[in-house]
Design a binder for these strands. Sequence first.
DNA 1: CTATTATATGGCATATATGCCATATTACAA
DNA 2: TTGTAATATGGCATATATGCCATATAATAG
Lengths: 95, 95
Amino acid sequence: MITFDDMLNEQLQDPEFRKEYEAIQPEMDVIRAIVDARISQNLTQKELSERSGINQADISKIENGTRNPSLNLLKRLADGMGMTLKIEFVPKQQA
Amino acid sequence: MITFDDMLNEQLQDPEFRKEYEAIQPEMDVIRAIVDARISQNLTQKELSERSGINQADISKIENGTRNPSLNLLKRLADGMGMTLKIEFVPKQQA
DNA sequence: CTATTATATGGCATATATGCCATATTACAA
DNA sequence: TTGTAATATGGCATATATGCCATATAATAG
């Protein structure tokens, strides 16, 4: 059966779609950002593990929110995905 | 004497300017993002310390790159500034 | 100059992230 | 079903982030 998430993940591999998807999600959770990035690169946790040097088990935990990664860890993850990490502080609400 | 940084910091308090400044800085360092956000809110480290519950000394260390903060810490900082934390993974280079 | 505010630095105890292993669970294909 | 890949979970040692204090240095104002 094809789930909503399946479709979403597939679509996320399209850079255009991904960009727009994230644009309308300013509060999108960090976790989702990580998963999205990995999926968009068509990587499994194991593959990302090999490329980043971070254990698959730990990637899983991060993606499930059971870990609280440091900036360095996130950068290493980004690196493993051929990406760079960007963080922003966005004002909470428009006046 | 008025330095470049003085001017930059002053200008960063203008939301419009800040937005554009950051737009042309996709690789802008996390550290700079934190400082910019604080300055844009016209806060001192001490004030941010009071609002976020994070020690001024530690804010200084973070802003100087001598600490490697976790996601939670960054979120608490964002909160103290009335902002939300947003992270992105951006592809390293265009093909 | 002196005072005051802002930021930086060092140290240290304790909480927690990290890294790694084994294994369980889930998803998927033959 | 059975096999295989993908992801999740639990545990544990060790490295490191966090929190806090005191104080140093830098910047600013009077």
